[in-house]
Amino acid sequence: MFSDADAAALYDLLNPWDPDSRPDGGFYFPLVMGAESVLDVGCGTGAMLHLARKRGHRGRLVGLDPDRAALDRARRRADIEWVEGTAAEAKSGAGFRLATMTGHAFQDLVTDHDVFASLSAIHGALRPGGRFVFDTRHPQARAWEGWTPSNPDDVVEVVDDTGRVLRYWHDVESVVGDVVTISGTVAQLDGTVLRVLSERLRFLNVMALSGFLAEAGFEIEAQFGGWDREPVTGSSREIITIARRG
């Protein structure tokens, strides 16, 4: 058996939240700590908000995610508000100073309707002048070409909470337009497959992304091509956006 709860725990092993050693964490964490109210959209298991509270954040922290198993893990900390729902279901009028969407979660918004509905809802959840900060992989870097078991950097071995040694890798199922369908395989070291996790990711370019943001009422404050706040260039692997509600 490899349950939904196991999958949530595996996510934490594969994606540790550490602003002291990971550049993405180092980018987001000061923004979170500097905002008195934060909505983390696609919060997953809540690691970023857990750490914010642990390190002294005294304001309102809310995590929003549709994955019940991930939220069950997040709810181990009860001094944060956890809400089950999609980005498009973010509550209007909540008046947050900051909304975040980390870990390339924005790419799970696959259709035009998903993107616009989600951006519109996040816009409505912010107070005037509030900021939405998120990241998406730049399509020009073609990151999916490295998601294959033949790439040793894409095959990860971890030890889970029960002491099982697990191996995890990706396969690309299809690339259709700007949507990439992938599978993530969880297996034992002897090759026994425990679970296959499927995901569809959309790779929007800067122009398309900027158009959606403008349509939803956002003004782009800044866009970066990497975690050191370098500009977006022809070799950038990321599109990191700070958008402001006017």
Rank of each mutant, 00 (worst) to 15 (best):
V133Q: 01
F134D: 00
F134L: 05
F134N: 01
D135T: 10
D135K: 05
D135N: 13
T136V: 07
T136D: 01
T136C: 04
R137N: 07
H138Q: 02
H138Y: 05
H138F: 03
P139Q: 11
P139N: 09
Q140Y: 04
A141L: 08
R142D: 09
W144G: 00
E145S: 06
G146W: 13
W147N: 03
W147T: 04
W147L: 14
W147I: 11
T148V: 15
T148Q: 13
T148L: 13
S150W: 10
S150F: 10
N151S: 11
P152K: 07
D154P: 14
D154V: 12
D154M: 14
V155I: 11
V155P: 04
V155G: 11
E157F: 05
V158D: 03
V159P: 05
V159W: 07
D160K: 05
D160T: 01
D161Y: 13
G163Y: 00
R164Y: 00
V165W: 06
V165D: 07
V165P: 03
R167F: 05
R167T: 14
R167E: 11
Y168I: 15
Y168G: 08
Y168L: 15
Y168M: 13
W169M: 06
W169A: 12
W169D: 09
H170E: 06
V172I: 06
V172D: 02
E173H: 05
V175Y: 08
V175Q: 06
V176E: 14
G177L: 14
G177D: 12
G177C: 11
D178V: 12
V179R: 01
V179W: 04
V180I: 13
T181D: 12
T181L: 09
T181P: 07
I182S: 01
S183F: 01
S183W: 01
S183R: 03
V186K: 02
A187N: 03
Q188R: 07
Q188P: 00
Q188A: 10
L189D: 03
L189P: 09
D190R: 00
G191D: 10
T192N: 06
V193E: 10
L194R: 00
L194A: 03
R195F: 03
E199G: 08
R200P: 01
R200A: 11
L201P: 00
R202F: 12
L204I: 08
L204F: 04
L204A: 08
N205C: 07
V206L: 15
M207E: 15
A208C: 11
A208M: 13
A208H: 10
A208E: 15
G211N: 10
G211D: 05
F212P: 04
L213W: 01
L213S: 04
A214W: 12
E215Q: 09
E219F: 11
I220S: 04
I220E: 03
I220D: 04
I220L: 13
A222N: 06
A222L: 02
F224M: 07
G226H: 10
W227V: 10
W227I: 14
D228S: 14
D228A: 15
D228K: 10
R229I: 15
